[in-house]
């Protein structure tokens, strides 16, 4: 088993939490993990990404070779496309459809969505709206993770256990909300 995952978004959107949950789940399944993160300057509203590799065999490089990523999980549609060249030919894109516009020259959303839709293996999730509808505005990232679970080969129960472990210090209410978010995402 091997999954090379690129997580993408804008600083502050919570991609590192997604990485932490997947990492915890993988570790508990006895898999090897490598995860390269971005800290520092770009976290101030710039584009951020993380390379997450999980495998049943030892992993050499912290970075995923270009053209070999199995899945891009993005909190933002343009950020999904930023790493498109890294995706394997039959790779998947799971992305939120809501743009995060903090730059004056953000491209036409139509263009971005059309380019995304040229990918056969696409799960375009309206994660922001789902979060709002379900009164969990801070769990957009977990909805997206739920939506990616199938492609990741990680079932919701395994991910829920990890949410429980990772978020336990934040209280049961936060844990429950994030587990609910995973389940909403799974159906999306």
């Amino acid at each position: 088993m091997k999954k090379d995952i690129i997580l993408a978004g804008v600083g502050g959107q919570g991609i590192l939490s997604i990485a932490t949950i997947i990492g915890d789940a993988a570790m508990n399944k006895g898999l090897y993990i490598k995860q390269a993160e971005v800290h520092g300057m770009s976290q101030r509203g710039g584009d951020v990404h993380s390379h997450l590799r999980i495998s049943s065999d030892p992993i050499a490089s912290d970075l995923i070779p270009e053209g070999k990523a199995d899945i891009i999980i993005a909190m933002e549609p343009m950020e999904a496309l930023r790493y498109k060249h890294a995706l394997a030919p039959n790779g998947w894109i799971v992305t939120s459809s809501t743009p995060f516009v903090n730059i004056p020259n953000y491209p036409e959303l139509e263009t971005i969505l059309a380019e995304l839709k040229s990918f056969e293996n696409l799960n375009l999730v309206d994660a922001e709206d789902l979060a709002k509808e379900n009164k969990m505005p801070r769990s957009v990232n977990m909805i997206l993770l739920g939506a990616a679970a199938k492609v990741l080969d990680l079932d919701i129960d395994t991910l829920s256990e990890s949410v429980n472990r990772v978020f336990s210090s934040k209280g049961q209410a936060i844990v429950d909300m994030n587990i609910a978010a995973l389940k909403i995402g799974e159906q999306a």
């Binding site: 804008v10 584009d47 380019e115």
Partner: peptide, 12 residues
């Protein structure tokens, strides 16, 4: 895959 042409820089 080709790099996307519509993606623009998002500086901090």
């Amino acid at each position: 895959h080709d790099k996307s042409e519509s993606v623009v820089a998002r500086p901090p």
